[in-house]
Write a protein that binds this DNA or RNA. Structure first.
Lengths: 198, 198
DNA sequence: GTCTATAAAAGGATAGAC
DNA sequence: GTCTATCCTTTTATAGAC
């Protein structure tokens, strides 16, 4: 039984998020976990293998770590979308606007990723937008017929990532809020269009 | 006269964009410019000073490097917005979907930036959205009265950054195209709403 | 599986001659 | 302003005992 693996993944999730992948050293991971290099390299042959483990953990834990906490008190499918965005808002505020989406930041930091790494980043985005597509499906006729739900779900992710990026850069959550506000307006125009077809 | 400065800035703009800031070494810059370390450190006391020079160059060159090339054959103010986005599309395609916005990538890569660096990133975004606000102003009554043009311009940047991030991650420009398509739909709904007020 | 010690390389930066 | 040589630290990773 190797609690070492879990310790390292936990520490790496936090440090990659706080400092980025390149700026997190193996020594940082050892220091935080109180492990020795022998233990780490016994479980993860290279630093990149730690990254892969982290991305797999995010991918497999999206429901438990992200969706369920966001939706515990929300039933309306469209409000679920905005509840998810609100969870990001909370994280932005709690980090004094230094928050970055762990996946999005890695997606831009890693410039020549190993194919497995790139694939895992894509799977993370895919799972995120799939959850939104589920909400859009549940919204049924509140959206116009023929709405491209996949594209709209990707647009929700786009708004989140763009909003996070700007809030972080300007150190002002209002930039995130305005992105959500614009997305909200987009949804309201869609719901209006669904009621009164041309 | 120190052509060294320009050489280094040029090389750094390209390498920071291709590899990121942390993954670009001083040795990389020296190798590409065929300069010696003495010359570089004479002009830039530290690597971060190179970064600052790069960000100032982007900031001061947005018109010449980005806007004018995008708008040379476009007059309609709203089409200017989509012409700018189309320029990003071209860069995505030309780089086989590995393109990342130089500013956005740095904004997420640098986790504890020096205040001057963070400020320069913000000024770059600010200049970008200011250009969009100019288009929105020129569009006049095609947009509903009371439209928050600053917020809408930030949303255009949001769509670009989010679209770029996803196209890069999935290695598929269609993700960018769908983000632009959704933004286009948003603008069309706005123009429609401007014609037929409630 | 975990320990300590250390290799081997790359990184940012400096010194002092020219 | 530019040259060469080099210092010092950090970094990833390995070796071999336990």
């Amino acid at each position: 039984m190797s609690g070492a693996r879990e310790k390292i993944i936990q520490a790496a999730m936090e440090l990659f998020w706080l400092k980025g992948y390149n700026s997190t050293s193996i020594a940082d991971l050892l220091s935080r976990t109180q492990l020795n290099s022998g233990s780490l390299y016994h479980v993860f042959p290279s630093k990149q293998d730690v990254l892969i483990g982290v991305l797999e953990t995010y991918r497999d834990g999206i429901r438990e770590m992200l969706l369920e906490p966001s939706w515990s008190h929300v039933d309306d499918p469209i409000e679920k979308i905005f509840a998810l965005l609100n969870r990001y808002r909370t994280m932005i505020v709690e980090t004094d606007c230094t928050y970055g989406c762990p996946i999005g930041s890695l997606a831009l930091e890693l410039h020549e990723p190993d194919p497995r790494v790139r694939q895992l980043l894509a799977e993370n985005f895919q799972n995120w937008t799939a959850a939104i597509v589920g909400c859009l499906d549940a919204a049924g006729r509140r959206l116009p017929r023929g709405t491209d739900k996949q594209a709209l779900a990707q647009f929700v992710l786009t708004a989140m990532e763009g909003g996070v990026m700007q809030a972080r850069t300007h150190l002002d959550v209002a930039y995130f809020d305005r992105a959500v506000e614009q997305l909200r307006a987009h949804f309201e125009l869609l719901e209006k269009a669904a009621k009164a077809p041309a």
